[in-house]
Design a protein around this nucleic acid. Structure first.
Lengths: 114, 114
DNA sequence: TAGACATATTCCCATATCGGAATCTATTAT
DNA sequence: ATAATAGATTCCGATATGGGAATATGTCTA
């Protein structure tokens, strides 16, 4: 087997830094492809290709307006990623703070035993 | 150019699901390679190779104990990822809650204008 | 010293990239 | 209808992958 397709899931899609750049640019702000090209200094075909990947995993949504295609980030799709990473919080927090959290939360997000 | 190496950064390293499985398994719990092999049902060489990638981006730390290699997740390395994703919070929260946050926070994490 | 045991590395290969160049499609303007 | 504009897609080539199989390395034991 080879590496999983970039369109497999959000994790694979955001591995590319230019795609993360695009997501940040389109967060809360709808924009046509041309703007992305200008703002990020990339080739138009390249941007279109990245947008295609992001669209396939629903990280961005599109809407046509005349001859322009208006893209915007679908932040909801980033949430699972945030939550996955958040599961490790208890392991990076300081010991003291961790203890406090133990008391507040029910249990650890990952199994600790076999 | 081709796809960036999996060892380029944390984003590329965690794109592979088996590697995420390994990270969860080793979170807060040091374990030898053999345990990972047994618990995740993977081939030993495969596990070693994934661990090598995770090690290269400092997502796991190792320590030798006799003939065993004890690995554990370095949660700190996952933090940047959590923070990057967290930057989109304001865009996925409900409008009402978002307004409340606007008042508490200074500003948005991403530029909204050109 | 010769195993045995736990891991790591190398080799092979089918696959999926990403950028660049060229081309195609859709919509608007003349 | 024809041209112009905005994007999308296709074709190319160099590269990195991940699994499987085989082999190598390092440590402990008899």
């Amino acid at each position: 087997m080879s590496r999983a397709a970039t369109t497999t899931d959000v994790f694979n899609a955001i591995a590319e830094s230019r795609r993360r750049d695009i997501l940040s640019l389109l967060a809360g702000q709808e924009r046509p492809v041309g703007d992305i090209v200008d703002m990020l200094g990339m080739e138009q075909p390249s941007v279109s290709k990245h947008l295609r990947v992001l669209r396939d995993v629903d990280l961005v949504r599109v809407r046509r307006e005349g001859r322009q295609m208006l893209y915007r980030t679908n932040a909801e799709a980033i949430r699972p990623l945030h939550e996955w990473a958040g599961g490790f919080k208890q392991y990076w927090r300081h010991q003291l703070q961790r203890i406090k959290e133990r008391a507040e939360e029910k249990g650890p997000p990952f199994p600790k035993e076999k």
